[in-house]
């Protein structure tokens, strides 16, 4: 049987989550941002698995399956939007998305 301290496991999940967050904040390429979000979702799922194994319940795994379904739906809509964006702006740079402003406060 494995004897890994639960703290280490959570630390691992948290590190993954933070890596995803860093990626999201640093990258401007929308595809990379979507990938970072996937990393974050995955790490959140990991927490549920850890918790499920801590309590010996199936609920954590069930939740993971739902997360998987949601992630799939989100990615499909997200990628469709990215396609549209690419056709409109001819770029994947998120910083190009800056047309929505108050006319007066343009800067």
């Amino acid at each position: 049987m494995v004897t890994i301290p639960i703290e280490i496991q959570i630390l691992f999940a948290a590190s993954l989550f933070l890596l995803g967050l860093i990626g999201l904040l640093v990258r401007r390429n929308i595809i990379f941002m979507l990938m970072s979000i996937e990393v974050m979702f995955n790490s959140a799922g990991l927490v549920f698995i850890i918790a499920g194994s801590r309590w010996g319940q199936t609920d954590g795994q069930v939740m993971f399956i739902f997360i998987l379904a949601v992630a799939a739906a989100e990615v499909s809509v997200g990628l469709a939007l990215i396609l549209q964006m690419f056709h409109h702006y001819k770029t994947l740079d998120a910083d190009e998305l800056s047309k929505l402003r108050d006319s007066k406060n343009d800067s």
Binding site: M1, V2, T3, I4, P5, I6, E7, Q9, I10, L11, A14, S15, L18, L19, L21, I22, L25, I50, G52, S53, R54, G56, Q57, T58, Q61
Partner: peptide, 26 residues
């Protein structure tokens, strides 16, 4: 920013009772 969050997580983990998982297979 992420480092600050990490510190936060670490402090959170310190507060947990040290426990090893039973590794229940489901």
């Amino acid at each position: 920013l992420a480092f600050i969050l990490l510190i936060d997580f670490l402090s959170m983990l310190r507060s947990m009772n040290y426990r090893e998982i039973r590794g229940q297979i489901i």
